[in-house]
Nucleic acid binder design. Structure first.
Lengths: 235, 235
DNA sequence: TCACGGCAGGTTGCATGCAACTCGCCCCCA
DNA sequence: TGGGGGCGAGTTGCATGCAACCTGCCGTGA
C-alpha cells in the first residue's frame, strides 16, 4: 500500500480492490470485502446499478460468490436489491448523517466508558502511539494518512471494550460514516480540534475516569457530526 | 396462530417455521426467517450442526437459498460457519448476556429519549394499548402472550425513533436476547416489576420528558438483565 | 391523442453438477 | 504398542444452466 492514497480509484479499478484484499478465506469473503471497500471509497457511487454478471466478469469469478456478497451488503444496508432488476448502491441522505451520528455518540461513549474501566494491557500505549503519529502527520499537512490513523484510533477503542456486540455495531456505524466522504479534515481548524478531542478521551481513559471518557467520546462525536454537516453544506 | 404457543416446536418441526413465515418475497428470505425463528425459539439449539443438504430437503428447496440464508445468519452471529465442515448454531455464553444487555441499555435509552422528543402521532395510544393488554394478561397468569406483547412494546419504541440505524441494531440485540430463553416472567414478582417499568417509560414519553424516558428505559434494561441473570443462575 | 395488451430483451432466482477441502479411520512400520 | 501417512466418506465452494420475472416499447383500438 502506498503512503498517500487519498485518491479514490474511481470506476473500473474494481479489480484493484480485489487484489488489495487481505488474503481472506473464501472467494465470497474476498468479493464482499472488495465490493464493500469500493462502495465506502466512493469508487462505486450511490445510485449506481450493480449487475451480477458484470461484477462477476470484472472480478473473474462466477455469479455465485457475487450474489452472496450482494446479499450480505444489502443486509448491511450498503446496497438495495430489487428483485429481477438488480442491485443499487444505497443512496445517502442528509438525514442519514444525523441519524448515524446520534447512534455513534451513544456507542462510542459506551465504548470509551468501558475502556476506561477495563484498561486492557497495552491500550494506553497503542492509543498514545496512534495519537502521536496523527499529531506528526497533522503538522505535515497531508490528510490521507490521518484518515487511516483515525480509523485505527477508533478501532482500538472499540476493541478495548471487549464487547462483541458493541464492536460489531460500531464497525457498521463506521462504515456508514465513511460513505459520507473524507472531507472533514480539510475544514480549517478541524484537525487541531480533533486532536484535542482525542487527547481528552485518551487522558480520561488513562486516568481511569469512566464517566469523563464517556462524556469526551460523546462530545467528540457531536463535534465530528457538526464538522461533517458543515462540510456537506459547503459543498 | 394459536393463543398460547409458549411451546417450543422442538426439532423436526422446521417445516412449521417455513409455513408460519409471513408470505415473504424470495425463497431465500423465507428460508432465512424460518431458520432464524427456529434458532431464536430454541428449536435449533446452540451447538447443533446444520447441514445444507439436510435443511434443503427438509424445507423442500435447493441448497442455494439455504446457503444464502446460512451466510446471512452467520453475519448476524446466530450461527458459526466452518469451511467445508458445516454451520453450527452459535453457542451462547454467560458473558454474552452481560455484553448484550450493556449495549441494549444504551440503545433502548436512546430510543426512548428520541421517542419522547418526537412523540409521533399515535405512539402514546399504541403503547398504552399494549400496556393495558399486558396488564390484563398478567392477571390471568399466562406468560406466552406476555412475551409477544413485550416484543411489540419494544418494537413500537424503536420504530418511534425514526432512526433506521437504531432500529436495526435494536432488532439485532433483541434477537440475541431472545436466544437466552423466555424464562424471565416466571420469576416471582418480575411481571409486576416489568409492568411498572414500562409504565414509567410510557409516562415519561407522554410527558415529553426525554431525559426521564432515557433513564427509565435504561433502568428497565438493567433490571431485565438482573432478572435474566437470576433466572440463569437458578436453572 | 391516449390507454391498454403483449412481446422481447435483460436480469435475477433457484437448481444442479463437479471439484476441492476436511477429518476420522485404518493400516503400516518402527 | 505408539506414531504417522494416506485413503475414503462427507460436506461445502463455486460454476453453470434454465426458468421466471420485470420493464420498456410498440402496435392497436377507441
Amino acid at each position: 500500500m502506498g503512503a498517500t492514497e487519498t485518491q479514490r480509484p474511481r470506476e473500473g479499478g474494481l479489480r484493484a480492490y480485489l487484489d488489495a484484499s487481505p488474503e481472506h478465506g473464501s472467494t465470497t469473503d474476498v468479493v464482499t470485502d472488495a465490493l464493500r471497500e469500493a462502495i465506502l471509497d466512493g469508487a462505486l457511487p450511490p445510485s449506481r446499478w450493480l449487475r451480477e454478471d458484470e461484477l462477476a466478469r470484472e472480478l473473474s469469478v462466477s455469479r455465485t460468490p457475487v450474489r452472496e456478497a450482494l446479499r450480505r451488503l444489502s443486509d448491511e444496508r450498503l446496497i438495495v436489491r430489487a428483485a429481477h432488476r438488480g442491485s443499487l448502491v444505497a443512496p445517502m441522505t442528509f438525514d442519514d448523517v444525523l441519524a448515524v451520528y446520534l447512534v455513534r455518540e451513544s456507542l462510542e461513549g459506551l465504548a470509551a466508558q468501558i475502556a476506561a474501566r477495563r484498561r486492557p494491557a497495552g491500550l494506553i500505549d497503542s492509543l498514545s502511539r496512534v495519537h502521536r503519529a496523527m499529531t506528526e502527520r497533522a503538522e505535515e499537512g497531508g490528510t490521507g494518512e490521518l484518515v487511516r490513523l483515525n480509523l485505527e484510533f477508533h478501532r482500538l477503542l472499540r476493541e478495548a471494550s471487549g464487547n462483541p456486540y458493541l464492536e460489531r455495531f460500531l464497525t457498521q456505524v463506521e462504515h456508514a460514516v465513511r460513505r459520507f466522504g473524507r472531507s472533514t479534515y480539510e475544514l480549517p481548524g478541524r484537525v487541531t480540534e480533533m486532536l484535542a478531542e482525542h487527547r481528552a478521551i485518551l487522558d480520561a481513559i488513562a486516568a481511569g475516569d469512566a464517566d469523563a471518557a464517556q462524556q469526551k467520546a460523546a462530545e467528540h462525536m457531536r463535534r465530528a457530526r457538526d464538522a461533517r454537516v458543515q462540510g456537506l453544506l459547503d459543498a
